[in-house]
């Protein structure tokens, strides 16, 4: 399936090039003036490397939009700085809908707590079209360990290590909040993404780890890992037996979600067209199976709701981080 999306993207880029074969220096072209949106191919920047969940989601939506709206939506990877580089591309683009991006909440709600002020990306620089899906974090431990709940960790009687998927990520925040608010002696061990953190956990090199559900679920189901907690507002469909942190008496709610953005000042009809195309995509069986397969919970809400969520999450995280004196990175 991955191969298909790749070749689809290749075809899309090719078509874009064919279209752009005239007029000035160009790489790929956006829509030209006049006519209904989209009048040309659309570039979707993604702030992550190929293969991760951000990339897969972007490609899935891009495929759906291409089908629904009749023009090619091609995905360009511009990874780095938790998506800030891709965000900058969109921020600087013409507000005509020819360059859009599905972005991560963590860039706006969590990264500001971990980086210097001038590196902060603000949601005010974008128009938010609408939400896509939510990706939940889960606290896991190797099943050789005797622990089955957060309370067990409190009684572990030693300094616990927790693997995270990197600095300034939701996984780190979730774990840090758990240990700090639960008053458990701990040390964070950052890894470069989910896969190495998972490997270390499987080898019992670290005691616990916070991972995205999609990364951990296979090993939870086959019994190699024990899930101790999820950080969603309520139990999630993919792990119905795992209690939330709130149920276990800790006020920790952290999740990643993704939403469609356009440059600030994009005309309303363009945004409406994109949103309609996305909603049609959400309806397809293919897309729903994709969500299922990657343990993604739909979050198909309008843009203003997403902005509200981002604002409240950012404030909530900031106050929690301050309350428990958590060090997410250099600037906090």
């Amino acid at each position: 399936m991955r191969k298909q999306t790749l070749s689809l993207a290749a075809v899309a880029t090719g078509a874009a090039l064919a279209l752009s074969a005239c007029g000035g220096v160009s790489t790929t072209t956006g829509g030209d003036d006049g006519g209904a949106y989209p009048s040309g191919s659309v570039e979707m920047y993604v702030g992550a490397d190929p293969g991760g969940s951000s990339d897969l989601i972007s490609r899935q939506i891009a495929g759906g939009l291409s089908d629904e709206l009749g023009e090619t939506f091609s995905v360009l990877n511009r990874s780095g700085s938790n998506g800030a580089l891709a965000a900058a591309e969109v921020q600087q683009a013409e507000p005509d809908g020819s360059i859009i991006s599905i972005q991560n909440a963590s860039l706006f709600a969590i990264t500001p707590l971990a980086v210097a002020e001038d590196e902060v990306t603000s949601i005010d620089d974008f128009d938010v079209v609408g939400g896509v899906s939510r990706d939940d974090y889960v606290l896991v431990t190797n099943s050789e360990n005797p622990w089955t709940s957060i309370d067990d960790l409190k009684g572990a009687g030693k300094k616990l290590t927790y693997g995270t998927t990197g600095v300034g990520t939701g996984a780190q925040l979730a774990c840090a909040l758990t240990y700090e608010s639960g008053d458990i002696d701990s040390e964070a061990v950052p890894f470069d993404g989910g896969a190495p953190a998972l490997t270390a956990l499987l080898g019992n090199q670290v005691d616990t780890a916070c991972l995205q559900t999609g990364e951990a679920i296979e090993n939870i189901e086959n019994g190699k890992l024990t899930a101790l907690s999820v950080y969603a507002p309520e139990r999630i469909d993919f792990l119905p037996d795992v209690p939330t942190a709130t149920e276990q008496g800790l006020d920790v709610e952290v999740y990643q979600y993704r939403f469609m953005t356009t440059p600030k000042g994009t005309p309303q009809d363009v945004k409406d067209t994109i949103w309609e195309g996305m909603q049609a995509t959400f309806e397809t069986e293919d897309y729903q199976a994709f969500n299922e397969q990657n343990s993604l919970t739909p979050l198909e809400v309008p843009g203003d709701e997403v902005v509200e969520m981002l604002e409240s999450d950012r404030e909530r995280y900031a106050s929690l981080v301050e309350e428990y004196g958590i060090d997410l990175g250099d600037a906090s």
Binding site: G80, S81, L85, A114, G166, V167, G168, D192, G329, D330
Partner: peptide, 20 residues
């Protein structure tokens, strides 16, 4: 580039392109 343990910049001389 960015230190992956606490995000501080090393040997980047304030260049955004070197940050990663």
């Amino acid at each position: 580039g960015r230190d992956s343990f606490n995000n501080s910049q090393r040997f980047t001389f304030d260049s955004l392109q070197l940050a990663d």
